[in-house]
Design a binder for these strands. Structure first.
Length: 470
RNA sequence: UCCCCUGUAGCUCAGCUGGUAGAGCGGGUGGCUGUUAACCACCAAGUCGUUGGUUCGAGUCCAACCGGGGGAGCCA
């Protein structure tokens, strides 16, 4: 609550709706969602983004000056309303504001305003991303994003993890986690050349090629190997030419990294983390989540509650392959030990075999990154993927290779240069410890939690291939 | 990058085997004393994605390009 210039109490809509009506004078402000009027009676719905619900404002036989203002208060207009809070005599809402005064702050010509008082497709709303937060769905997503962001920090802070800021710009060009965006100040039309005619990055800003980060993991390992528990939560960039409903060029990622923690400890953390976030979301954004359940993904709440209540199924890659090949199901991509699991396989495991989240571990080393700890069998590594129904992989992580010689060999096997990783190898050279971590794509978490189909609709301003508007 | 679908009024779409456009919603005007996907009446609104081709004639058939969507790969 604050005060307006007349020293009247100004409430946000969610607070208005929580008050018990008793004719008390108050003010509110926000945007007109819809208006309905008859000769002597005008209703409009006021929304200020504080919650999904609107508050209904009623004007009965308004004075001529107020009536003139009401005429200007079309869909989308910003207004300040003064009135009293009353019990509503009609169905649909328990309280309403009986308006006594109205100021249109900013008009919104109805014949031009792109948001009509009707349902719009997400594709259309994507084209007007500057206005879509004024809709129910995108307002709800903004609140869910906020709730989850804070829950992520709270989860780790309660467990004595340190929030670590890893760099956005990196000069290590061999992280191997996908195509990278180059960062440069060289002139694109006439870059300096060396004696071989190649671009001379020695003249570039950093004196060498630089890129936007694809992961903070290697940096996080540095701090985990000193402070034990750290996490990152920041933007991540991938220049992959992938056009899907679950890829972005710029997305936010959470990456905890923990020393003295093996793969089982890592799985425990991932499972506890996801359950904590979903439970917090159901409690903190109940109204928004009910909206997603009824309008976006029927059965969502029941589905999430099951995830919270039940243990995640934990199977090895070998067991997964066995389950798939003995299922009698024919897949587009045949299953055999050694090949990576495809989307159809992940879907089958989570949606039909186990009907819930599944953590798959111990993958063949050939299909996983060099830094994952090699098992005693010499063939598999301690990677883990958390798979969920509807979405597939939501978390990817591993216990990291802590043995110096083994890691050096894995780097070489992967076709990388040991010299590039001298500092990473130093962590194993001096006071090495078993340590683990994982990466959670924030937008994928939101997709999973809300049931939204397209990842471009769970981030305010999506950046993807051929798409960087707003 | 590959495969499939799609582009007609502000939005969502219909338009059969080629004969030069239609609905619902939205918008405007008027009516209505409790509406809430308001209701009733009337009105306005389209170089049918772009370019080229076939044809007497193309929204409709063909080609290329551009945009959008879905799936796959890659991954978070």
């Amino acid at each position: 609550m604050s005060q307006n210039s007349n020293h009247e109490a100004v409430f946000r809509v969610r607070d208005v709706l929580a008050l018990s009506p008793g004719g008390q004078p108050l003010s509110a402000r926000g945007w007109v969602r819809t208006k309905r009027d008859s000769k002597h009676l005008v209703f409009f719905e006021l929304n200020d983004g504080s919650c999904l619900s609107n508050v209904q404002v009623v004007f009965e036989n308004p004075a001529p000056d107020v009536a003139a203002e009401l005429a200007r208060a079309q869909t989308g207009a910003s207004v300040m309303v003064r009135g009293t809070l009353e019990e509503s005599p009609a169905k649909g809402q328990s309280v309403e504001i009986h308006g006594t005064g109205l100021t249109v702050v900013g008009q919104s010509p109805a014949e031009l305003y792109p948001l009509q008082k009707k349902r719009h497709s997400f594709e259309y709303l994507r084209e007007i991303a500057h206005l879509r937060p004024r809709t129910n769905t995108f307002g709800a997503i903004a609140r869910v994003r906020n709730q989850l962001s804070f829950a992520i920090h709270r989860f780790f802070q309660e467990r004595q993890f340190l929030y670590l800021h890893t760099p956005i710009i990196t000069a290590s060009d061999a992280e191997g986690a996908g195509e990278m965006f180059r960062v440069t100040t060289l002139a694109p039309d006439a870059p300096p050349r060396n004696e071989h005619g190649a671009v001379d990055f020695g003249k570039d800003f950093f004196g060498r090629p630089a890129y936007l980060t694809v992961s903070g993991q290697l940096n996080a390992e540095i701090y985990a190997c000193a402070l034990e528990r750290v996490y990152t939560f920041g933007p991540t960039f991938r220049a992959e030419n992938s056009n899907t409903t679950r890829h972005l060029a710029e997305f936010w990622m959470i990456e905890p990294e923990v020393a003295f923690c093996d793969i089982d400890c890592n799985m425990d953390l991932a499972e506890e983390f996801l359950k904590y976030l979903l439970l917090d979301l159901l409690h903190g954004c109940g109204e928004d989540m009910a909206f997603f359940d009824s309008r976006v993904q029927p059965g969502l709440l029941e589905n999430l509650q099951l995830v919270i209540d039940r243990s995640f199924q934990r199977i090895s890659y070998s067991e997964a392959v066995e389950a798939l090949s003995s299922s009698g199901r024919s897949f587009e991509y045949p299953v055999s030990w050694g090949v990576d699991l495809q989307s159809e396989h992940e879907k089958f495991l989570t949606e039909e075999v186990y009907r819930g989240p599944v953590i798959v571990t111990d993958y063949p080393k050939e299909i996983k990154a060099f830094y994952m700890k090699l098992n005693d069998d010499g063939k598999t590594v301690r990677g883990m993927d958390v798979l969920v129904p509807r979405l597939g992989e939501i978390i990817g992580g591993s216990e990291r290779e802590a043995n110096l010689e083994t890691l050096e060999q894995r780097i070489t096997e992967s076709g990388l240069n040991r010299e590039d990783y001298w500092w990473y190898l130093d962590l194993r050279r001096f006071g090495s410890v078993p340590h683990s971590g994982f990466g959670l794509g924030f937008e994928r978490l939101i997709q999973y939690a809300t049931g939204m189909q397209n990842i471009r609709d769970v981030i305010p301003f999506p950046r993807a291939v051929k798409s960087a508007d707003f």
